[in-house]
Structures are given as C-alpha cells and as structure tokens.
Amino acid sequence: MVTLRRELSDADVRRIVQESLRMISQTQNDLGVPIALNMWRTKLRLETGSFVAGAVNRRRGNRYGMDYGSFAPPSTITLDRKLPSSDHPLDMPDLAETMTAYSGVHEVIHADDHTGGDRLLLATREHILREHRDKLEKSMAIIQSEGGCSAIHDHGDLASLWAVQYVDMATHYRSYKVLQHHRYPKLDHIWSMLSDDYFPPNLLTCIENSRGTQHVFSLFTEQAGGYCLIEALEEYNAIKERDSCSYTV
C-alpha cells in the first residue's frame, strides 16, 4: 500500500479499505484466527459504503493517542486526510505508510464487529455489570467526588465506557496481527506509541507471548462475556509476577 506525501482523498480511503479487507481475509486464512468473524457480510456492506478523507475527532471513550480513523454505522469509514504526514516531524515515510494501513484495518475491524451485532461489546458490558459491581461503585464515587462527568450518569454508562475501551484494545491487537503478518515496517514503533495508557493494547501481546495466540483470540470469541480490561490487567500482572519470581530464583 503506497502513500504519497499529500493529503488523502475520498478515493484513497476507498482503496485503503479495499486493501484492508483483502489483508484481513488473507491473515485469517493463513493464521487460522478469528480476526473478523463477519467478513463476507462486511465486504458486501462496504461495497455501498461511504469513504471520507477528513478531520477525525476522537471517539467518545477512546483513550489511545493514535487515532486517525473512525467508523460510523452502518458503513461509513473516515480516515484523517493528513495520514500520509502522520510521521511528522520524524520524516519516516515507512512509518506513515504503516500508520495509514493500520488505521484502515482498524476501522474495517470495527465495521465487522458492528456487522456481527457488536457481540463482544455487549457481552463485555454485561460481564462488567455482573462481575465488577464493586469496582463500578468505587469508580462512580471518585467521579462524583470530583464533580461528576456529563457523559457518565450511572453504572451502566461507566460499564459501557469500559467495554468500549476493551473492544478498542482488542481491535488494536487484531490490527497489529494483520500488519505483523504482512511484515509492515515500523510496526513496533506504532505499538510503542499505544503503550502510554492505563490499559495499553500491548497487554495482549504480553499475554500472547506467555499463553499463545489462540488463547488471546479465544478471549474475543469463546470467552466473550467473561473477560474485560480488569481480567486483562490481572492476567498481565500475574505473568509479570511469575516471570519476576522465575528470574529471582
């Protein structure tokens, strides 16, 4: 996928989306992992979709620093028109090329999740409400003590926010696997850009290194509704503690 040092056009976004669909399908077939479970229906839906090169506003609830795209149901994908210069001021064209491909894949996966009824999102929200009521109560108390938040009125709103953050973390991981499979340059640089967060998506690559790729993908399928940001952090901390003990011994 070649990007020029100019702003993207709507036609460029359409091309990037088509290439993203191809790469996701190939990666799924080659690796045998469920990156996008509704791909054939998503392809059909995006055939008549809208593709926009514009200015991208951060999605509500998204905490990640790298956000150059958005998906609006049922089939609109927007990419930041300035993506070809997203490496500024580093002057690393390979990084901008990979960032552009990454953003396209990321939004196509969001579109695929929507095609499937956002099952992971809804199951995660219900899991949080069911299993983490105590943490919701503590967090709501903190929010209220600091003057409240216009977007969060109750436990349901907060659970929705945490579920959105978890799904975006899972989407980043799936996007990473697609570009890793296609050997895009400077991918590790992008991954490190996402690490400055309470729940960075590289939690999942750490878990993958310990328990395997199939285990991580099972979190989004067989174990959907039994796992969220909280379990991911707990599993990550347990791995680090075990590794630390092994090193000490």
Rank of each mutant, 00 (worst) to 15 (best):
E97A: 14
Y68I: 00
I239D: 13
L129H: 07
K138A: 11
H110N: 13
K177A: 04
I35H: 03
L8F: 12
E234V: 06
D157G: 02
T78R: 07
R15V: 10
E234H: 13
P74T: 15
A11M: 00
S145E: 11
M99C: 07
S210Q: 08
N57G: 09
G32N: 15
E235V: 12
D30M: 09
N38L: 05
A55K: 08
S246Q: 08
K177W: 13
T205V: 12
I152P: 07
H155C: 03
D188H: 10
P200H: 07
E222P: 00
R6T: 15
R119D: 12
S103H: 01
I128S: 07
P89I: 13
A11G: 05
P89M: 13
K186G: 02
E7T: 08
S195H: 12
Q28A: 08
P34H: 07
L31V: 01
R242M: 14
R15H: 12
T27A: 13
L187C: 08
S246W: 06
S50E: 10
G156M: 07
D154I: 02
S139Y: 12
H189P: 00
T171S: 03
S218F: 08
S75D: 10
S175T: 15
L21F: 14
L122R: 14
Y227H: 09
V13Y: 09
Y247L: 11
R63D: 09
L44K: 13
L204C: 03
G49F: 15
F199K: 00
